[in-house]
């Protein structure tokens, strides 16, 4: 498998505070990679650094062999990286249809076709085209946030930040199914989760991050079965 994303020794700051220390990781084409760790470990910041929303101060990030760490977020998106943020951040005052129309702007393909394709995948959204996104349930908003990440410029790598957060167990299952489906169709996924068991169940490989440093890297099932590591790194007994 070829390397799609390569993060090499990045250091990231929020203002004065140093959040990521020499973080390196790679994601191969076609993989699902989980990035797990406790609250505040730097998982979200890692994704924000990849999107250049909180640019890395040191180190390089390569997508398809080209450095992207100095780009603006909209150019990162145009390189095929799509971000589903924590807490979904759908545009609450816009309808479902408007959310998708906006996201489909940057795409090369015919927008209507693109949008109809995601409606087929997410029938719930199809039923709610004219509903304001802010009035939908958390699960529906999560579907919309994922759908929004799939239209517009081609999506090669999907960055998912806490997609299970605040959702009922049944809905978490649905989200996991969607991630699996998308991966089967060729979308590479970098998944950040507090819910380590869900993430490791989906992933091929896993990284554990702790206070801004990568402390563990292994196949996902290996970590899942390593009770000691699960307890030390993630507090899972």
């Amino acid at each position: 498998m070829s390397e799609l994303l390569s993060v090499d020794g990045i250091d990231t700051y929020y203002g004065e505070s140093h959040v990521l220390f020499d973080v390196s990781m790679s994601v191969d084409s076609g993989e699902v990679v989980a990035l797990v760790g406790r609250n505040g470990a730097g998982k979200t910041t890692t994704l924000r650094s990849v999107m250049c929303l909180t640019p890395a101060a040191e180190g390089t990030i390569e997508m398809d062999g080209e450095e992207i760490q100095d780009l603006d977020p909209h150019d990162v998106r145009r390189r095929g990286i799509s971000w589903v943020p924590e807490e979904r951040r759908v545009f609450g005052g816009l309808t479902v249809a408007e959310n998708l129309r906006l996201a489909a702007r940057g795409g090369e393909d015919d927008r209507t076709t693109q949008i109809e394709r995601v409606y087929e995948r997410f029938p719930r959204l199809d039923e709610r085209r004219d509903q304001h996104a802010g009035t939908m349930s958390g699960g529906e908003q999560q579907m919309l946030a994922i759908a929004r990440a799939l239209v517009g410029p081609e999506t090669d790598l999907l960055l998912l930040d806490e997609p299970s957060e605040g959702l009922a167990p049944q809905i978490v299952e649905d989200v996991a199914d969607i991630i699996r489906e998308l991966n089967d169709e060729g979308v590479t996924v970098l998944l950040v989760e507090q819910n380590a068991e869900m993430a490791l169940g989906l992933a091929d490989r896993a990284y554990v991050i702790e206070t801004g440093e990568v402390v563990h890297e292994s196949p996902a099932d290996e970590l899942l079965n390593d009770r000691e590591a699960m307890e030390t790194y993630l507090g899972v007994r």
Binding site: M51, L53, D72, P73, H74, V76, R77, R78, W83, P85, R89, F91, G92, G93, L94, E98, N99, R101, L102, A103, R105, G106, R148, G152, P153
Partner: peptide, 24 residues
């Protein structure tokens, strides 16, 4: 219009609009 949608979305969350591939 699309421009209106873009304006309303940017008023709500500019960072998110940027991350969708639009030069804010």
């Amino acid at each position: 219009s699309d421009l209106g949608i873009l304006m309303r979305a940017s008023a709500h969350d500019t960072e998110m609009v940027d991350a969708l591939g639009i030069d804010v």
